[in-house]
Design a protein around this nucleic acid. Structure first.
Lengths: 229, 229
DNA sequence: CGAGATAGTTATAAAATGCAACTAAGTATT
DNA sequence: AATACTTAGTTGCATTTTATAACTATCTCG
């Protein structure tokens, strides 16, 4: 039986740099759309990938040189028109990475684009990125997901800023801390972040903990009057 | 380029009958696993399906004779071992249907299996069904999703029972009603459900409303001491 | 050593929730 | 026709959670 469909994986790799959300793109090395920035992705190789997650990891490894720790299936975009080569299904994944780990790669292969200021991308990659950001936003309302965008150690203010950027509105400091500590997935380290003001306690994710979930959403009302740029 | 992968869609059709959750299965008409009960599914037809959702609808239409109103992509199961024919990707969907609409079909083609008492099914269909039930359960904690399992008109007690069956624990009556009415997605009809006791007001989903979402989860604590059979 | 800034805590009024007792409206029983 | 029984639906209130704002703490800089 000949189906004539293409099966690919695409990965939306998100990171936070200087308080802004960025997407990692690569220049396409072949047609269609050769030379244009696009999501890391590629054909599923039936002979070497045991499943679609393995395919996504292989693509990241080959094209970026590393695999991000948080990698989750996002959605499957499958239709007749998204790829000029024919009927195509893309099993998309999204990944969260802290920017230090990303920049530690001395690879100059990747491009960082601000997530809210993207050019028009090939295929339906803009739509895939929109899905990923929406998923990140939705999941951040009830989970510790944004931790994965931060370096291994971070201050609570930095974590709060990550939530605020993702959710798009400010949060109350005391309520935020109450909820985060309630979950018990963070532990204080012995270090502090020195700056020009009071040093802030550094925290890290408690080793044994998986993704922590809130009982209720973290962003029910936000804080009156203020707004996040 | 020859990829040699199979692309299929599978649909987990869930319904509630006499307070129990059921899955609709069909006897497979061809090998592999011919004659065994399995999820409705089939190959994506690149020449007639514009996208994977259309493929799912076509499969439902062809194999069951109707398309369920609530139909949403669930997950994509894609690996080398799930199908004996080769590397296979199944874009799975889940659908909610009220049992009256289902039984109104005079088709004898489908089988109803209780969701928590399934035999071993072909492929990874047990796993797909587990995913669907988990998704239904998760989404029911913060949305009006269970409404789609009920007939067009239903009492609040029936709706509460649907939630309790899905969530697996009892809910408090007054808190439940408070939350449901707060959402404002229900309207009372002029009819009542007559029984041996006080008649219950029938409600329906307000026409313009889409899927309503709670601000907080509906099942934070449940009710002490009791349990749902 | 005081101003400024950010970190972190505490107090409290308001809102939401859990729980239980209550009223309402029907049928069945005596 | 009075009463018991069952399910529908409401009400009241103590408790918990939340939003908000004011407070204290600790650093650098001038």
């Amino acid at each position: 039986m000949e189906q004539n469909v293409i099966l690919t994986v695409d990965v939306v790799l998100l990171t936070l740099k200087e308080g802004e959300l960025y997407v990692v793109l690569l220049r396409r090395e072949r047609d269609p759309y050769m030379g244009q920035p696009a999501l890391p992705g590629g054909y599923v190789h039936a002979d070497e990938d045991i499943d679609s997650l393995a395919a996504a990891k292989r693509v990241l490894k080959q094209k970026l040189g590393f695999v991000s720790p948080y990698l989750e299936q996002l959605y499957t975009f499958a239709n007749a028109t998204r790829d000029p080569r024919g009927w195509s299904a893309s099993v998309s994944y999204y990944a969260l990475l802290n920017v230090e780990a990303l920049l530690a790669q001395e690879s100059d292969r990747f491009l960082l684009y601000q997530a809210d200021d993207l050019p028009q991308l090939p295929f339906d990659h803009n739509r895939i990125i929109d899905f990923a950001i929406k998923r990140l936003r939705d999941k951040s309302t009830y989970s510790a997901l944004p931790c994965h965008l931060l370096p291994e150690q971070f201050t609570l203010s930095e974590l709060q800023q990550a939530y605020e950027k993702i959710l798009g509105h400010p949060l109350d400091k005391s309520a935020f801390r109450r909820k985060i500590f309630e979950l018990g997935f963070l532990e204080a380290t012995t270090e502090t972040r020195k700056g020009v003001h009071r040093p802030a306690q550094l925290h890290r994710i408690r080793p044994a903990k998986n993704l922590a979930l809130f009982n209720r959403t973290i962003d029910r009302y936000g804080v009156s009057g203020k707004s996040v740029p």
